[in-house]
Every structure is written in C-alpha cells, then in structure tokens.
C-alpha cells in the first residue's frame, strides 16, 4: 500500500464530505425536528432562521427535516442499484470472459446494445412502462449500469485466464463455476472497487434526474431530485429551497469521487 500526502488528502476530504451525508442519514432515521409533510400555512417561505435552520418551502414544510429524510432514499437507491448492477454485471462479465466464443459474443452484443442508448432514456422507458415507483427505479437503473461492470469483469477475466494458476486449476479438474468465483473473482476486486464508487455517484445523479422528472421517488416521500423540481418556480425568491438539497448531493457525489480517487492512487490497481 502506497499512500502519499496527496492521496491521503483525497481520503480526508472525501471522508468529511461523505460523513456529512451519513450523519444526515443516521439522524433522519431517528429524529426530525418537524414531520416531513407537516405543513404550516403561517410559516411559508421562511428564510433560514433559528426554528427552521434550512428555511421552509411553499407549503411551510421544514427543509431541514426533508433533507434528513431524503438522504435515506439517496443512499438506498444508489447502494441497492449498484448492488443489483454488480450482481448482474459480475455474472455476465465472468461468464462471457471465461467461456469466450459464442457465449461471450451474445452477452457482449446484448450489453453493448444497452450501452448504445443513453442510460437515463432506458430507465425512463422502463419506469414509464412499469409505473413510477422506488422499486422500478432501482431495477431499471441497475440494468442500465450492469454493462459497465460486465465490461470491467470480462476484460480482467480474459487477462487472468492466461495466468498459470488458472491453467493449473483447470488441469486439476476444478469445476468452471468454482474457478470463476473462487479463483478469479477475488483477484478482480482492485479493478471493481473504483467502478463501484463511481457507479454510486452516477446512480445518485440518475436517481435525482428521474425524481426531478417525477418518475423516481414518489410523494409523499422526499428526495433531493423531487425537492429541486418542486422548488424551481421559487428559485429566485427562495433560493434556500434549491441550495440545501443541492449542497447535500454535491457533498455525496464529490465525496464519492474523492474516495475513488484515493482508491485509485493508493490501492495498487490491477494484479501484477
């Protein structure tokens, strides 16, 4: 492990940014100062003050409470979506890379096919067909992200296939599935980790985009994308409605990028 000052700086910056989001998430699980859908006609458009530190929106709902709860959905969608993509991508990539030939061709044509379309469009189509819900958003985004992981796994698998220890395993007559998952898979972790982190960040952006369009997390649940889309008419008169949800997302995504940068520079990428 080689960790220079510069890469440690990445770790610290990313860590601080992410822990802000994490603190919001944990706090939001147990306590919010106000109910997230509690409206108060008397205190509409309050600028940040002592009672409402992030201010209130057009219905008098507390923005801080909504930010606390929205962190939950951002983390949920990004983590489950990436996990979903990772499982599909791993299976497809390993099988394609290990078997080669016609199986590889079919899987890769299919995954390249998915990659040809803009990801958000595919996800939108899926949600439009199956109806907008959190679950649909997750699997649709997972499917869109899977080819990225499949590619990473496939290339690295092909590279490892020529290694003597894999030849040795084949000679010993070990079952191909065992070779794939026990012999090859652990050696791919160093390539996959950065892909996972970047995937988390991209997934969040996609989710916000979809919520903004009204196809993601559905009301009454709060999500950053939804909060932005609700606030756009009041952008000039009540800028805090835009600023705080945006800041939260910036913290999360920037934090992830910094951490992935740290992984890239300090953890020895690839197997020698």
């Amino acid at each position: 492990m080689r960790s220079s000052t510069a890469s440690r700086r990445y770790l610290y910056t990313g860590g601080i940014l992410l822990s802000i989001v994490l603190a919001f998430f944990i706090l939001g699980l147990f306590w919010t100062p106000y109910g997230i859908n509690e409206t108060d006609a008397a205190s509409k458009f309050l600028a940040p003050c002592a009672e409402h530190i992030f201010g209130t929106d057009n219905l008098g709902r507390d923005v801080f409470s909504r930010c606390l709860v929205a962190a939950r959905y951002t983390l949920l969608v990004s983590f489950t979506g990436v996990a979903y993509a990772l499982v599909i991508g791993t299976l497809a990539g390993l099988i394609a890379g290990y078997n080669g030939g016609i199986i590889d061709k079919i899987i890769m044509i299919f995954s390249n096919g998915i990659m040809c379309f803009p990801g958000i469009l595919l996800a939108l189509v899926a949600v439009a067909v199956f109806g907008p819900s959190l679950f649909n958003v997750i699997w649709a985004l997972g499917l869109v992200f899977a080819p990225t992981f499949a590619r990473v796994y496939r290339t690295s698998t092909i590279e490892l296939l020529g290694r003597d220890y894999i030849l040795q395993a084949k000679l010993m007559g070990i079952h191909p599935l065992r070779i794939m998952f026990v012999h090859i898979l652990p050696n791919l972790m160093s390539q996959v980790l950065p892909a996972v982190i970047i995937g988390l960040a991209n997934m969040t952006l996609f989710e916000s985009g979809m919520s903004y369009l009204g196809l993601g997390v559905q009301p009454p649940a709060a999500s950053y994308g939804k909060m932005l889309s609700d606030a756009q008419s009041y952008m000039v008169s009540a800028p805090w409605l835009i600023i705080f949800p945006t800041l939260m997302r910036v913290c999360y995504i920037l934090g992830l990028y910094f951490i992935s940068e740290w992984v890239r520079t300090s953890v020895k990428g690839g197997s020698k």
């Binding site: 003597d164 220890y165 040795q168 000679l171 010993m172 012999h183 050696n187 020698k272």
Partner: peptide, 14 residues
C-alpha cells in the same frame, strides 16, 4: 500435473 515457468503467476495472489 504441471509446473509452469513463471513464479509470479504460478500461485493465485488472492
């Protein structure tokens, strides 16, 4: 059974 040339890749690093 076989023994191969390259000591770097003869064993699984993981």
């Amino acid at each position: 059974a076989a023994v191969f040339q390259d000591p770097v890749s003869s064993l699984n690093p993981a």
